[in-house]
Design a protein around this nucleic acid. Sequence first.
DNA 1: ACCTGAACACCGTTCAAGT
DNA 2: ACCTGAACACCGTTCAAGT
Lengths: 217, 217
Amino acid sequence: MAAKSPLNRHAFVEAALEVIDEVGVDKLSMRNVAVRLDVSPMAVYKHFPAKEDLLAAALEEFITRANVIPEDDLQWDRWVNQLARGMYEALGSELSWVPLLGSLRLGTQSAAVADAFVRKLCRAGFTTEQALQAFFAVIQIVVGAVCLCASLAARRDEVAHAGADLSPVTQDYLENIDSERLRIAPVLESTLRYEQIDLGLPLLLGALKSQLAETAK
Amino acid sequence: MAAKSPLNRHAFVEAALEVIDEVGVDKLSMRNVAVRLDVSPMAVYKHFPAKEDLLAAALEEFITRANVIPEDDLQWDRWVNQLARGMYEALGSELSWVPLLGSLRLGTQSAAVADAFVRKLCRAGFTTEQALQAFFAVIQIVVGAVCLCASLAARRDEVAHAGADLSPVTQDYLENIDSERLRIAPVLESTLRYEQIDLGLPLLLGALKSQLAETAK
DNA sequence: ACCTGAACACCGTTCAAGT
DNA sequence: ACCTGAACACCGTTCAAGT
């Protein structure tokens, strides 16, 4: 191996993504990234002033690789649908990012996604302002859906009661609610079988279509 | 002070909330909670098997105190609107919870909110399934809006360029995007002045109204 | 320039021991 | 029962020093 060429930023980002892939974001440390590169833990600080900067760079690279921007030949509503699902799946496949979504800053790649979104919707007849608001609304749904998905997944990992037919969520719900309202339980159970993204996103897309019809008039 | 009565669970939750209020969720530790109660750090483990359990209990108490369930005499759409805004404001006032929203499990109080929501919408004419889906959609919007809000706030805390008229978000956007698309910048700037909750929530409420009209037919 | 070693001030958690 | 003290195996970060 070409052992001693000086390491660049990208090597650290690459190593960080590998560590995250193996043990999750929350267990990434400056030390284990360094160990993976066979380098002193403190070498990382020459390229990233703090752990947060390394994480932000890794998230940016993760978003780039997720490659969520759909082909341009789709109709706008299908385009938005596919973008949202792509983001949902990418984040869902690496749930350990989720706790950081609220605190990390996004960079170049996020701007590119925003830009593509606004151009797509403007060409479909939305105003720039509507398009940008729609973008934030879609991101909200995606981020929210991934968060809920993560917190439900955490529940499912809890020790499953032997022979229980109901999900842990429903079980807790039943423990915490008056017996008068038991009728909600089966509906809760079936609703939890949906992917979270299928709950908010269709409603949002419907609203955007009405808005477009309104604007076109 | 009645110093030596044995401490109960609630005393620890109370102390945890005080610590969080002062230094944020991310700096809460078993040790500083214990110090606040003038007790050995290890006493906490007699009541909570792990830090995560203490945090979950604290979040539950936080939600209870936020008291977000609106009065019942409001119309369903205003009721939903007020609930969502209440949750948004509560979480927004204590942004340090946000990074944990995806990973913490919710309990009794969350079930009570879900229950109130479903009952309210069912009485307005929604089916139980629609109501429950709407609940998850609303939660998605709230959680997503708070996450975005937090990540924009993190940006605003970065060193503000002297004399800059544009927000850090817009500045980064401009750095990362072709000059051809500069026209988006002013719209981005004005969109960022909205509260995040005002972007997704109105669209969602509009969609729910159409759905209700559909169902009533 | 780029990396190292040792150190500081913290963590969560375990475990045997106290009262 | 409830709490303590000491210890283990980690953290992020700083800083003077090496090459």
